[in-house]
């Protein structure tokens, strides 16, 4: 029919390409590149392929990964959550404070704190309809301030030994945190692409005004997203405590950027309307393989950050270039 001249296409950037639950070439390229880098690293540093190294690589991947999963869904809905790292800090400090009362108390407090923070975000963004980037910017400063106020500058180390042991004992060769992440990824994948909930979230991201007129439950869906993200943050905080056997008021500060970077690396468009869970997983893997590989080859952590930043720009630029040549 109409050969889509530019003046009649409402949002060309969004409609050219579909990711939802389908093959995502960006993720495939990313995986191939990381595999090549892994082989290169393995040749130079054989211990890269050791079980211990993969334990070391996959545990933090899983913690960031939980945040990235929630971020994928939130970006699909046209939102963003900048407060995830701060929620991890707050939930971590509070949970570690409850540590002396046992594992159950620690887990309960971590989840409850995460959910409460998520509920606050969700309330302001969902029912009140405030813009996510600003709400979560304010919430980030607020939650991080609370974490510092409760936790002070020091650390907590009264972690129940049973919980700390979880961080050390692999299940079927892989860290428990990774299995939890994998399970969460699969569940979220089904929910995002196969359930009405997920399709409604993509619809809200694609055109919020149309979603309102079509009678979709915007406030409830948005609230549920930020609540879910809060819960995932609480879970990530608990897993982090298990791995580190301690907690600090700034423990989550450095998680926000890798989580968002992994989602964007995986090809989920920042404008919302579609998403790729597989892409997010690939983005996480690429990010952490690069980091780990550089570390093994003795590159300073500073240069690792620089390389990660360059990788992020390169991946998105490649995506944009591909979209442009596709036209």
């Amino acid at each position: 029919m109409n050969p889509t001249p530019a003046s009649t296409t409402p949002s060309p950037a969004r409609r050219r390409f579909r990711l939802d639950g389908q093959f995502n070439p960006q993720a495939a390229i990313l995986l191939l590149l990381s595999l090549a880098f892994a082989i290169f690293t393995g040749v130079r540093q054989p211990e890269f392929w050791s079980a211990e190294n993969w334990q070391l690589l996959l545990s933090p991947l899983a913690e960031t990964g939980l945040l990235a999963l929630g971020t994928t869904a939130i970006i699909a809905s046209g939102g963003i959550d900048l407060s995830i790292g701060a929620i991890v800090s707050l939930a971590g400090v509070l949970a570690a404070g409850a540590g002396p009362h046992g594992v159950a108390a620690l887990l309960l407090v971590a989840l409850a704190a995460g959910l409460a923070c998520g509920a606050l975000n969700g309330l302001l963004i969902g029912p009140l309809g405030w813009p996510p980037i600003l709400v979560t910017l304010g919430a980030m400063i607020f939650f991080q301030g609370l974490a510092l106020s409760f936790g002070g500058g020091g650390g907590y180390s009264h972690i129940p030994p049973a919980w700390a042991a979880l961080g050390l004992s692999p299940w079927a060769g892989l860290p428990p945190a990774f299995w939890i992440f994998a399970l969460a990824a699969a569940a979220l994948g089904v929910a995002l692409y196969q359930s009405a909930w997920g399709r409604e979230i993509a619809a809200i991201g694609a055109n919020p005004a149309a979603a309102r007129v079509s009678g979709l439950p915007l406030a409830a869906r948005r609230f549920s997203l930020y609540l879910l993200q809060g819960g995932l943050c609480g879970l990530a905080a608990a897993l982090m405590i298990a791995r580190l056997a301690s907690a600090r008021a700034d423990m989550g500060i450095n998680l926000m950027l890798p989580a968002i970077a992994a989602v964007v690396l995986g090809g989920t468009p920042i404008a919302g309307g579609s998403s790729s869970i597989a892409g997010t997983a690939a983005g996480l893997l690429a990010f952490y393989i690069l980091r780990n590989g550089l570390m093994l080859q003795g590159v300073s952590p500073y240069l690792q950050d620089a390389a990660a930043g360059a990788l992020l720009i390169a991946a998105v630029a490649a995506y944009q270039w591909r979209m442009k040549s596709k036209r």
């Binding site: 950027l257 964007v264 930043g309 360059a310 992020l312 720009i313 998105v316 630029a317 944009q320 270039w321």
Partner: peptide, 15 residues
């Protein structure tokens, strides 16, 4: 490169 500003400056921040 056509990278959205939030992503581009996130990357250059790290870089």
């Amino acid at each position: 490169l056509g990278v959205p500003p939030i992503v581009a400056t996130l990357g250059t921040m790290g870089l």
